[in-house]
Amino acid sequence: MTPVRFSDHSSVLAEGPMWDHRTDTLYWVDIDAGALWAKRSGHPSRKLYEDADYLCGVWLADNGGFIIAGGAGLHVLNAEGAPLAHPLATPQIGANMRLNDGGIDPQGRLVIGTMGREEPDFAQPLGALYRLSADGAIETLVEGLTISNGVGWSPDGRTLYLADTIKKRILIIAYGTLDGPIEADGCTAIALDGLPDGLCVSADGSLLVAMITAGQIIRLSPTGEVLETLPLPVSCPTACCFGGSDFKMLFITTSTHLLPPDHDEADAGFVLSLMDAGQGRPETPFRTGLTS
Rank of each mutant, 00 (worst) to 15 (best):
V4H: 14
R5W: 02
G16A: 12
M18A: 14
D20P: 06
H21Y: 08
D24Y: 04
T25K: 11
L26P: 07
D32K: 12
G34I: 07
R40M: 12
S41V: 10
P44C: 06
P44Q: 08
R46G: 01
L48T: 09
D51W: 04
D53P: 04
Y54D: 10
Y54W: 05
C56Q: 15
V58F: 04
N63W: 05
N63F: 12
G64L: 05
G65F: 05
G70Y: 00
A72I: 07
H75G: 09
V76E: 06
N78A: 02
N78M: 06
N78S: 09
A79S: 13
P83Q: 10
H86V: 14
L88E: 01
L88P: 02
T90E: 05
P91T: 02
G103A: 13
I104W: 11
I104A: 11
V111S: 04
T114G: 03
E118R: 15
P120K: 13
D121P: 00
A123C: 10
Y130C: 00
Y130M: 03
L132A: 00
G136I: 09
E139I: 02
L141H: 10
L145E: 03
T146G: 10
P155K: 02
P155Q: 00
R158F: 00
L160Q: 06
Y161I: 11
Y161H: 07
Y161D: 04
D164H: 08
D164E: 01
K167F: 08
L171M: 02
I172Y: 06
G176Q: 08
T177E: 15
T177W: 11
G180T: 01
G180R: 04
G180M: 02
I182G: 01
I182W: 03
G186L: 05
G186F: 06
L195F: 15
P196S: 05
P196M: 08
L199W: 14
V201Q: 10
V201T: 12
S202W: 03
A203W: 06
L208I: 14
L208Q: 05
M211R: 08
A214C: 11
G215H: 04
R219K: 07
L220V: 13
P222Y: 02
G224P: 12
E225G: 00
L230P: 07
P231F: 09
L232I: 03
P233Y: 07
P233Q: 07
C236N: 15
P237W: 06
C240I: 04
F242H: 03
G244S: 06
G244K: 03
F247S: 04
F247M: 11
M249D: 03
T256I: 13
H257C: 15
P261W: 05
P261R: 07
P261S: 12
H263T: 04
D267A: 02
D267S: 07
S273C: 13
S273N: 07
D276N: 14
E283S: 11
T284D: 07
T284E: 14
P285F: 03
F286S: 14
R287V: 10
T288A: 08
T288I: 09
G289S: 09
T291C: 07
T291M: 10
S292A: 15
